[in-house]
């Protein structure tokens, strides 16, 4: 029996009158692959930001692996095994693609040589493997800021993946990636996640991708979870069709 990995109770937060998160009770079981869908402004990113410590909720709690992580800093939450990628890619613009991943890999180590080359202090194999996975091997020596938007997103995801997290939260991983490449990319990404036993949440607008890769869907409407369940059930929910898919 798989256990609960992430749990929130009564999570709330509003920004000057707009309730982005309205008393959300939510549970995620280990091994799930959850897609969060919803229109812009429904509170998807806010939810992710609260769970990863970027925002502090005005009420409610977040539990990871049974422990209360409400209000902890992003760094502490990340160190507990929650990694994430971003809607706006957060990369090290002046480092090369490979260096970005090396730095990420170095975060897994506690003791690091002050005068020892980064190449020799981290697990280079996992870096190169991840580079290959997101098809950035050819670009490994290019400065990250020179990548096109789609590849910046991939680098962003790769940096989270290198951390070898227990839970990976991806905020629109395929936006900006061309539609031809989208499916292939999701395929490899999802395969890698299941190989590594990583539970994942991804915010996504493309329903084709959602239907294909998610094991469960949660639909957000105005700061609340309007429907939550197996993909088929949620995608056929009349309220979801009216407010999320149709609109």
């Amino acid at each position: 029996m798989n256990q609960t990995l992430l749990k929130t109770t009564g999570l709330s937060l509003s920004f000057g009158g707009v309730t982005a998160c309205d008393g959300i009770d939510f549970e995620l079981t280990e091994g799930e692959r959850l897609a969060i869908v919803g229109q812009n402004g429904a509170g998807k990113t806010t939810f992710v930001n609260i769970c990863t410590g970027y925002l502090t909720p005005s009420a409610g709690q977040v539990f990871f692996d049974g422990e209360d992580i409400t209000g902890l800093s992003p760094r502490k939450i990340t160190r507990r095994g929650v990694a994430r990628s971003f809607q706006i890619p957060q990369i090290f613009a002046e480092h090369t693609v490979r260096e970005c991943l090396l730095i990420a890999a170095s975060a897994r180590r506690d003791k690091l040589g002050f005068f020892r080359s980064i190449d020799r202090s981290v697990d280079v194999a996992s870096v190169d493997e991840t580079l290959k996975l997101v098809q950035l091997s050819q670009r490994s020596h290019l400065q990250a800021r020179l990548l096109p938007e789609g590849q910046r997103k991939l680098l962003d995801v790769a940096m989270a993946l290198v951390l070898n997290p227990r839970l990976l939260i991806m905020d629109e991983p395929t936006s900006g990636v061309s539609s031809e490449e989208k499916h292939g990319l999701m395929e490899t990404l999802m395969q890698a996640l299941s190989e590594r036993n990583v539970t994942s949440i991804f915010v996504e607008h493309d329903f084709e991708i959602v239907a294909r890769y998610a094991t469960r869907i949660a639909a957000w409407i105005a700061g609340k979870i309007a429907a939550d369940g197996p993909p088929k059930q949620v995608l056929e929910d009349p309220e979801v069709i009216r407010n999320v898919i149709g609109g």
């Binding site: 990340t78 957060q90 613009a93 951390l163």
Partner: peptide, 15 residues
Amino acid sequence: AAIKTNETRLEYLGI
């Protein structure tokens, strides 16, 4: 050197 470009990401790596 990453502090120059993106401290947020650094924190989100657990550094």
